[in-house]
Each structure stands twice: as structure tokens, then as C-alpha cells.
Write a protein that binds this DNA or RNA. Sequence first.
DNA 1: ATGAATATAAACTAATCGGTTTACTTTCGG
DNA 2: CCGAAAGTAAACCGATTAGTTTATATTCAT
Lengths: 205, 205
Amino acid sequence: MGAAAGQIKRGRKFDQVLEGAQEVFMRDGFEGASVDDIARAAGVSKATLYSYFPDKRLLFMEVATGQCQRQAEECIQAIDPDLPPEEVLRGSAERMMRFYLSEFGRAVFRIVVAETERFPGLGREFWEAGPAKSRDVLIEYFREANARGKLRVADAELAADQFTELCKVDLHPRLLMGLCRDVSEADRNRVASGAVDMFLARYGR
Amino acid sequence: MGAAAGQIKRGRKFDQVLEGAQEVFMRDGFEGASVDDIARAAGVSKATLYSYFPDKRLLFMEVATGQCQRQAEECIQAIDPDLPPEEVLRGSAERMMRFYLSEFGRAVFRIVVAETERFPGLGREFWEAGPAKSRDVLIEYFREANARGKLRVADAELAADQFTELCKVDLHPRLLMGLCRDVSEADRNRVASGAVDMFLARYGR
DNA sequence: ATGAATATAAACTAATCGGTTTACTTTCGG
DNA sequence: CCGAAAGTAAACCGATTAGTTTATATTCAT
């Protein structure tokens, strides 16, 4: 996937085009973004844009998958299973919230949710690049912590999904629906603590 | 709001137009829906459509707010505080899941998330018509149950948001991202039980 | 039945869109 | 410094869009 994917050509202004497309797609969505806008934002002529990407769809897909990759890096977290569970959970919560609540994370999420019908496979690509990785790490940790007797987790997958969901509490829906523009550090702490407390009440020992 | 809102005219074919618009908007989103499509789906001429609604935006807003009202009815749940908490929670979980996971609920959610930038206020309208009502009912119940000593809930708002979020676990994100088309009864039971168990582990007594 | 209100199909406008073409300029390796 | 490759601006194409108009048909209260 590093060389030439599909019909896409590499070259001097490749990244430039991609950055402009990223900016405009993330702001306006797929339908809302016009190719002229993208070319202007990229500081590139429309002809050049079309010399790299055969059409708008593929350009969008390239942007979207690129974002997914970026997210993957954010999400890969080394968990130290020797730390007390409370600290592991706390760190995980902060990491997940930092992504899900960021402007960037919200934009990607919004686009994936909005366009997943028009672009089959986009949802899965996003999922597997980001959330699934984070999920796997958590599951693995819960299994090990259970075996070691540090936690009592029968269904590690359910537990991982629950913890992830607990990290979104209130803040994520609020931001997604435009009920507020951003969240304070205090809000995050309240939710993160709430998630850890609840998780340990259920699965701690 | 029952008589004449904004510039909108009532008349014989009003509901017919609205139903067609509903169908097409819910399927294609705002940008994706064409007015000709809507008129066709409504079984009405374009001129008639425009005699009721001054433009596409207002028609969309009317549909969206209508959906929010519908959702409100779905969500208003009478909670019997004399029942054991476990049963109250179980009923609440099922009700919320029935909405959030339905094709209808997902379409509304998807549209709200996608268009909330283009239509400021849409998110709030949806929120206050639906989720907020459900939330208030839960909060009220948790306060009373705490006072009665049936639960031990210090922060009723946090608890309500957590329980709501626990009802979305795994299934809601999966559906939103198109990772699966629908969920089985077994999936729902697993998640509902997981939510109730976790909640009671934290706030039960 | 009649006349006013309402609905219709279809043509039309002006704008926008994705994508191509053309004629010209810049970049850059050998 | 030269020539091919790459980039540019702008005009252009065909399709589609929101919204209007026109001329005709239907509905409905009186």
C-alpha cells in the first residue's frame, strides 16, 4: 500500500493535494466539498489534482484512510500490566478521550458516520485502523489481569467495550450534536474518574 | 407551534409532502436529497411542494423537528419507583436500545450528527426533544431511589449519562459505522444485562 | 353548476458541480 | 542551457441542482 494504490500517481505535489483535500473534506464532508475548493485550498490547479487522482471518490477515500492510519498511531498504547489496574485504566481513559473528543477525532467520526452508506467499507477501515486496535489492547490486558487475579473479568470483550463507552459519557454526544464547542479539563476528569470507578466496582477485586 | 411556524402554509397535502420529505431525507441526508425526488416520493408536484415550504432548508428543518417530536414520544417512559431497581433499569435499557438501535433512530442520529454544522440548533432540538427527556426521567428516578435508600447515587446526572452510554455499548457504534446491518436479540440481551450488572455493581446497595 | 382555490406537468432559469481540454509557463535533470 | 515533464489558469462540457413560471386540470364550497 506504500507504492501505488489503485490508480493513484505519486509526485511532487501529491502531499500538497492530499493536505488540501483533508482540510476541505474534514470541514465540509464529501458532498459539501467542491473539487475547486480543494484545489484552491491545496494551492494547486484542478488539472494537477486530477493528474494525481482519477476522481473525487478516490481522493476522498485516500484522505479518509490516511486519517484512519493517523488515528491508529494515536491509539496504539503500550499498557504496563504491572501497574495497578486503576492507573492502567486511568491512562487508557485519558488517551481515548484525548482522541474521541479532539476536533480531529470528531471530524473523522462525523464523516465516517455520515458517509458510511455512500462508501461501503469506509466504516470498517476506520474501525480496524483505530478503535479496533485500542479495543484489542484492552481485551488482551483484561485477560491477563484476570489470569493474574488483578481483575475479575469473565467477558473481556464486553468489558473493553463498556470501558470505551464509559469514556464517551455525556461529552462525546454533546460535542457531536453541537451542544457545546469544547469541554473543560474538569469535565474530562469527572468522566474519566467516573469510568474508572464504575469499571472497578464491577470488575475489581 | 401548532398553527403556523415561520413561513409554512398548511393545507390538504401538507402531511403528504412531509412524509415524502421524511422518506427521502432520512435515506439520502440533506445534500443528497433532491427536491424533485422528494416531490416524486410525496406524489406531489414540485410547485405544490414549494407552495407549502419556501425552501429546502425549512422543509428539512420541519422534517427533522417532526422526527424529534416522534422520538420524544418513544422516549417518555413512566418509571415505577416501587419496582426493584434491577427491573427499572432493565426496562429502561430495553426502551433506550429499542430506539437507538432502530433503523429510524440511527437515521435521525446520523443526520443530526452529519448536518449539525450546517444547521445550528438542530442538534439541540433533537437533544431536547428526545435524549434529554429520557435523561431527566432517569435522573429524577435516581434521586428518589437514592433518597429512599434503594440505590446509592451521589451524582445522579453522571449516573444517568453512564447508564445511557452503557446501553449503546458495541452495538451502536457498530451499526453507525456499517460494520453490521442489524443486531440479534441475544446481542441486545447481553449488552442490556451487562449495563444493568455494571450499574448495580457501582450504585447498588 | 359555477367560480375561486388548489394542484398538476413540464418547460425554464441561473448556478454549481465533476471532470476535460487547451494553450501557456515553470521546474529540473543531464 | 536545453528539452521533456510537470504545473497553471481559464475556458469549456454535460449533468444536476434549487427554485420559478406557465398553461392546464382538478377540487370543492356555495
